[in-house]
Structures are given as C-alpha cells and as structure tokens.
Amino acid sequence: AEEIWQQSVIGDYLARFKNDRVKALKAMEMTWNNMEKKEKLMWIKKAAED
C-alpha cells in the first residue's frame, strides 16, 4: 500500500524538492508515518484490488 501511495505522490514530492530524490523520499516516509489509519486504509484497499 505504501508503494502505491508513493508512486502516486512521488512527482509532487520531487517537484517540491527540486528533484532531490533523497529529501523527497525522506519527506514521503515521514508523511506516510504521520498519516491517519483511515487515510492509509484507502491505499491498502487500492493495493488489494491490484
């Protein structure tokens, strides 16, 4: 689920960090860890469908 979420937001994060992939990935990891369980559930369901 986290991978699907990352694939959907990586472009936004890379743009925000001027294509600094290391910073973008760290920010994504922090965002994922801070997400509410119900927000993650949507992505977990999406992962299950694929």
Rank of each mutant, 00 (worst) to 15 (best):
K23N: 07
Q6T: 08
K38R: 09
K18E: 13
M28L: 05
I10L: 11
R21N: 06
N19Q: 11
K18D: 14
Y13H: 02
K45L: 13
Y13M: 05
I4Q: 07
D20G: 01
D50L: 15
R16W: 07
V22E: 14
A47W: 14
Q6R: 14
Y13C: 03
W43R: 02
K46M: 13
K26L: 12
E29K: 11
A47R: 03
L25F: 12
D50R: 15
E3I: 13
L25D: 04
A1E: 04
A15S: 10
L25A: 08
W5Y: 04
D12E: 15
S8P: 00
K26H: 11
I44W: 06
M35R: 01
K46N: 05
K38Y: 11
A15I: 12
D50K: 14
R21V: 10
R21M: 12
A47K: 03
T31C: 06
E3D: 09
Q7V: 08
E2K: 13
E36M: 03
K45Y: 07
A47D: 04
K38P: 06
W5I: 00
D12G: 09
L25V: 08
Q6V: 09
L25C: 09
N33Q: 13
F17K: 01
K18R: 11
A15C: 10
I4N: 07
W32Q: 00
A15R: 13
N19L: 06
A24R: 01
E2W: 14
E39W: 04
E36H: 06
K18I: 05
M28N: 00
F17I: 01
M28V: 02
E2A: 11
A24V: 05
E29A: 12
A48I: 13
M42E: 13
N33Y: 08
K37G: 12
N33W: 07
A47T: 04
I44V: 08
I44L: 12
G11N: 13
K38Q: 12
S8C: 12
N19E: 06
Y13E: 01
E3Q: 13
W32L: 00
S8I: 08
K37D: 15
I4E: 03
L41F: 07
D20A: 02
K45I: 13
D50H: 14
Q6D: 01
K38C: 15
W5N: 01
L25S: 05
M42F: 15
N34A: 11
K45E: 13
A1V: 05
Y13Q: 01
E49P: 05
N34C: 09
L41M: 09
R21C: 14
A24H: 00
M35C: 02
F17N: 05
K23W: 03
M42I: 15
Q7R: 14
Q6A: 12
E29Q: 13
E36L: 05
L25W: 07
W5R: 01
N33T: 11
S8W: 10
K26E: 12
N33R: 12
D20W: 02
A27M: 08
M30D: 14
K38D: 15
Q6C: 11
W43Y: 04
K26V: 09
T31W: 05
A27Y: 06
E2N: 09
F17P: 00
V22R: 09
R21A: 09
M30E: 13
W43K: 02
N33M: 11
D20F: 02
A1Q: 03
W5T: 00
V9M: 06
Y13G: 00
G11E: 12
K37A: 15
M28H: 00
A1K: 02
V22H: 09
L25G: 05
E2D: 05
D12R: 10
D50T: 14
E3G: 08
A27H: 07
K37S: 15
D20L: 03
K40V: 03
K40D: 01
E29H: 10
A15H: 10
N33G: 07
T31L: 06
F17D: 01
A1F: 04
G11R: 13
R16D: 04
A48T: 10
N19D: 10
K26G: 07
A1R: 02
K18C: 12
D50Q: 15
T31R: 08
K37I: 15
I10D: 01
I44T: 05
R21E: 07
E36N: 11
I44S: 06
E2S: 10
W43V: 02
V22K: 10
E39M: 05
E39P: 01
L14F: 04
D12S: 13
M35V: 01
T31G: 07
Q6F: 08
Q7W: 10
M28E: 00
Q6S: 09
N19F: 11
R21Q: 07
K26I: 11
I4H: 08
L14A: 02
I4K: 11
I4D: 03
N34G: 08
A27C: 07
W5S: 00
L41Q: 09
V22L: 11
Q7S: 10
I10P: 00
N34F: 06
S8G: 05
L14G: 01
A1H: 03
M30Y: 13
E39K: 04
M35S: 01
K45W: 07
L41S: 06
T31D: 14
V22T: 10
M28I: 04
L14R: 02
G11M: 14
D20I: 03
E29F: 07
K26R: 12
E2G: 04
A15N: 06
L41P: 01
M35N: 01
A24P: 00
M42A: 09
E3M: 14
K46Y: 07
V9A: 04
R16Y: 08
M30S: 09
N19R: 04
K18W: 09
Q7Y: 07
E29R: 13
I10S: 04
A15Q: 10
W5V: 00
E36V: 04
I44G: 07
N19M: 12
D50W: 08
A15T: 12
D12I: 12
M28D: 00
A1T: 03
A48W: 12
Q7I: 09
K37F: 15
M35W: 02
I44C: 09
W43P: 02
A27Q: 06
V9I: 05
A48D: 08
K23P: 03
V9T: 03
E36P: 15
K38F: 12
I4C: 12
K26D: 10
K18A: 13
K45G: 08
M30H: 13
N34Y: 06
I4L: 15
E2Q: 13
N19P: 04
M28F: 01
Q7F: 09
K40L: 04
D50Y: 14
Q7C: 12
D12L: 09
E2Y: 15
E49R: 09
G11C: 15
K46I: 11
K23E: 12
I10M: 11
R21S: 07
K46W: 07
G11Q: 14
K45H: 08
D50S: 14
A47G: 04
M42S: 11
K18G: 12
I44P: 02
W43G: 02
Q7N: 11
A27K: 03
K26S: 09
R16M: 13
K46D: 04
K45N: 11
E49K: 11
M42R: 14
K40H: 03
V9D: 01
L14D: 02
R21H: 11
